[in-house]
């Protein structure tokens, strides 16, 4: 009985992890510019990897490697925002203007902007 519940919880965690990774992928494809995409790209790391590692922790149970899995999560939670910040900061330094709803640039313009470093923005 306990085994079944645990297996169920593990499967649920993995499915949720996959779901959030999927959402993150859809977001990267759908959202307009580098800043909005950075928001959703980090979702795959935080909850996607988070749930996957929670699944690993559940399947390992209480033993020494479990602590390593938790440490893994800690490092992801420290490095993920740092990377997102580094990417958007360099975009900001390149002078790339963030897209807003008032903005009538199309995605083609945004791509051109990204190539020229926002010089014609």
């Amino acid at each position: 009985m306990m085994g079944t519940i645990r297996a169920g919880a593990i499967i649920a965690c993995l499915v949720l992890g996959l779901l959030f990774t999927l959402v993150s992928t859809v977001g990267v494809l759908r959202l307009p510019d580098i800043y909005s995409r950075a928001h959703t790209a980090s979702q795959a790391d935080t909850l996607g990897a988070g749930f996957a590692i929670t699944g690993v922790v559940l399947s390992l149970g209480v033993q020494a490697p479990t602590i390593k899995a938790v440490l893994l999560l800690v490092f992801i939670f420290v490095t993920n925002p740092t990377a997102a910040h580094a990417i958007t900061r360099s975009a900001d330094e390149e002078g790339i203007e963030a897209w807003t709803v008032d903005d009538d640039r199309s995605d083609v313009d945004l791509a051109a902007d990204a190539e020229t470093g926002g010089e014609n923005a």
């Binding site: 928001h39 959703t40 939670f77 420290v78 993920n80 925002p81 997102a84």
Partner: peptide
Amino acid sequence: LANSITLTPGTLTVRVRGQHLVVHTL
């Protein structure tokens, strides 16, 4: 604080200038 803001989807710290955080909100 800046890392926590970035970890929360929907808000993203782009720059830190002194005490001022430039945050992109979705």
